[in-house]
Amino acid sequence: MSLPAIAPSDLSPRPPVPGIPPVAAPRVPAVSPLVPPIAPAIPSVAPMTPPPPPPGALSPPPPPSAGKGPGLDANQLADLASRCAKLEQLDYFEVLLLERTATPADIKKAFYRESRTYHPDRFFHITDKQLKEQVHELYKRVTEAYYVLRDDTKRKKYVSDVTGPERAQKLRFTEASEAETKAAAKKEQEEQIGTHPKGRQFYQQAQKDIDAGNWSAAERNLKMALTYEPSNARYKENLAEAQKRLQEEAKGKGDSFKIR
């Protein structure tokens, strides 16, 4: 069964009926074609830059130069080259940048200062062969200087050498210098206590008598010591002092004419 055709005239709006308000046709929303929604545009953001440091802030230290060692600046490199160039003309005090009147504490402090800067372990990774050799030579001489100057006996001998006419030949403390130092120390000890066992025995007893103020016994023991070592200057010096004290005691007692 087919539906009757609708004439165009049937779709035209009807004339209003008296007494009945017209009815508005329902509004059909317009349908947009199927287009995907467009995402809102995101404004581009410029990369953030760190704020400038406040006034007076410390800037980080620059990285060390490649192949130039850890922390050695231009001045230190120049100082290293200069000191190595004249190393053979420097005495141990000059190597440690010290005066000859430096105390043992000053010497120790100078050695630690140089070690912190030029210890070879701080330069093991660098590729500059010349710099490595300079550091090695300077640190070797610094260690040698400390070894000699920290010893009171060696320092005394070394100062005598470098202030004498043979300074140029005595700048380094060699095995010969070591032997000379030991011989001088032995001689000094022998002059103090003697070389003969019996002479040393009487001299040591005389020293105890002197400490006790017993000058008569000291004189007796010193004379006995001189029978074994008649040329010992120390024995003679102490005997003269003991006899002087005995004379002073005798004068104090009014007995200056007593025959001994």
Score class of each variant (00 low, 15 high):
P4G: 06
S9A: 14
P13Y: 03
I20F: 07
I20Q: 07
P21D: 00
P29W: 00
S32T: 09
P43G: 03
S44C: 08
A46F: 01
P47Q: 03
T49Q: 07
P51A: 03
P60W: 05
P60H: 09
P61N: 00
A66N: 04
K68C: 14
N75F: 05
A81C: 09
K86R: 14
F93K: 00
V95Q: 01
L97C: 15
I107Q: 05
K108R: 11
E114R: 14
T117N: 05
F123V: 03
F124R: 10
T127P: 01
K129S: 10
E133S: 14
R141P: 01
A145G: 06
Y146R: 00
Y146N: 08
Y147A: 10
Y147T: 11
D151Y: 00
D151L: 06
D152F: 13
K154W: 14
D161S: 09
T163P: 06
P165V: 07
F173D: 01
E178W: 10
K182L: 15
E188F: 11
Q189N: 13
I193T: 10
G194C: 08
T195I: 08
P197T: 12
G199L: 06
R200N: 09
Q201C: 02
F202R: 01
Q205D: 08
A206T: 04
N214K: 00
N214Y: 02
E219D: 06
E219A: 11
L222Q: 01
K223Q: 13
M224E: 14
A225V: 08
E229P: 12
S231A: 12
S231T: 14
N232C: 06
N232G: 07
R234M: 09
Y235P: 05
A240G: 08
A240W: 02
K244S: 15
L246C: 10
D255E: 15
S256A: 15
S256I: 07
